[in-house]
Design a protein around this nucleic acid. Sequence first.
RNA 1: GCUCCGAUAGUGUAGCACGGCCAAUCAUACAGGACUCUCACUCCUGCGACUGGGGUUCGAAUCCCCAUCGGAGCACCA
Length: 509
Amino acid sequence: MKEGPEEWQARLETIAPELIEELNTKKEPDKGLKPLDVKEGESVVMRFAPNPNGPPTLGSTRGIVVNSEYVKRYGGKFIIRFDDTDPQTKRPMLEAYDWYLEDCEWLDAKPDEVVIASDNMEVYYDYARQLLEMGHAYVCFCEGGDFKKFKDAKEPCPHRDHAPEVNLEHWDKMLAGEYEEKAAVVRIKTDIEHKDPAMRDFGAFRIVKTAHPRPEVDDKYVVWPLLDFEGAIEDHVLGMTHIIRGKDLMDSEKRQGYIYNYLGWEYPKTTHWGRVKMHEFGKFSTSGLRQSIEDGEYSGWDDPRLPTLRALRRRGIKPEAIRKFMIDMGVGETDVSLSMDTLYAENRKIIDTIANRYFFVWDPVELEVEDAVCCTVNPSLHPSEDRGVRCIDIGSKLLVCKSDVESAEVGDMLRMKDLYNIEITSVSPLKCKCIGDSMEDAKSNKMRIIHWVPEDGIPVKVLAPQGEFIGIGEKQIVDELDNVVQFERFGFCRIDSVDDGVVAYFTHK
RNA sequence: GCUCCGAUAGUGUAGCACGGCCAAUCAUACAGGACUCUCACUCCUGCGACUGGGGUUCGAAUCCCCAUCGGAGCACCA
């Protein structure tokens, strides 16, 4: 005989009435970051580990924000560690070390500790020696392709069974620079028959004879650790409790697990997130960007078209907006592809109340006002916040946006915002007459409200991701250097310089 | 080729560990409307999703299997 929910409920009432209430309580949905698996009283240690081979971008930001946010919530230590152990292929950029630190601070994620992997080479060498002594690692002389064949066939390569003493001898020769690049590599023994080929005897050190860009390191070392080794050692030495990183490094945990087992260490708790892509920015690689900048395609790493933090900062995006954006996204393993609009919406909420309003006329055209009276108007700096007024002197000519008047006909009436109403008297040349300043008239005649600027305004250039806008703005804009303002009917901008005319970076609509 | 992940509205996201509270959350986008001397802000309203197929069960977004699609690893990159 089949039972339905009603029977169940009835039966529950007789067996355990105290559970009925629980059955009907609504669960509250969580927002943002999930709680971390933290032991009672444990303080967390987390890190963000970039390779400083370019400036931080929106992609790197997830690592900065999420890790630092967890540390803020649980108390503990946030470490930035520069994984700069590749002087060749992903060669670090000297300036980028500082850029990361600057941007972290800007994002309110100042690290408690800064670690540079290339400072700790001796530590890696020590553990390498230990593993070689224990017989858990070996120096392999196979050519890349040959090793792959062995590996794919689940067969050990001829060097795998060398005695520790032999391996140590080879290791010392490696360190002494006696082998050429690619001639020898240190591998960690895992399980050569592991069903996942990615797990079989992975590389830990290789020879690179290119000098490191950091002057304090330079050509001091020719044997460099690979990420899985360097990261494994550092994470333990630094006492990491939790690791959150991209899912491209998912296999790292399994590989590094061998090292941790051999050394008797406990692996930190790990979480992964998927790839983040922004709709507006296609695929971009740090090296590709670098090339484009050198070619002059972009003005620099803070070109408004780029997704670097420096560019977003210059455009007036607030760090709080970026933090919220990243935190609300959570840490799913799905690859996400999201739109800048979401970030802009977050930012707009913050800047709308703080940005003063000004007129900026793009594609300006002259509009002569017949019988104009010279006067001064004082529009508010902000529509709802009480922050005082602007001061604009008017003569007989105004400048307005071409798009606002190009289809105008004689007899059309327009409201000049905060000024007066006009009626077009001539189209070519464009002339009008003032027909009073009554707002009621403007409303009853359903006049379009447009903005304007006096003819002696200041030249303004707006640099936006979609291109440049040239026009004229109110003189008073020069008081707003470094502030985010709103050019009415145009969008928000950060005033970048006021030296020779105004240069503004477009924030968003 | 082998291996490992993942899949909820246009875009993100909550719910999945422990199956009924889900006629599925929130945000953003979009559409309509209100307000407004900005195309901004604010406020209402609407829109819109459990990848597909089997199975288990009284009951499946949730558990199991298969398929499809997407991502990743098997580097002397990080």
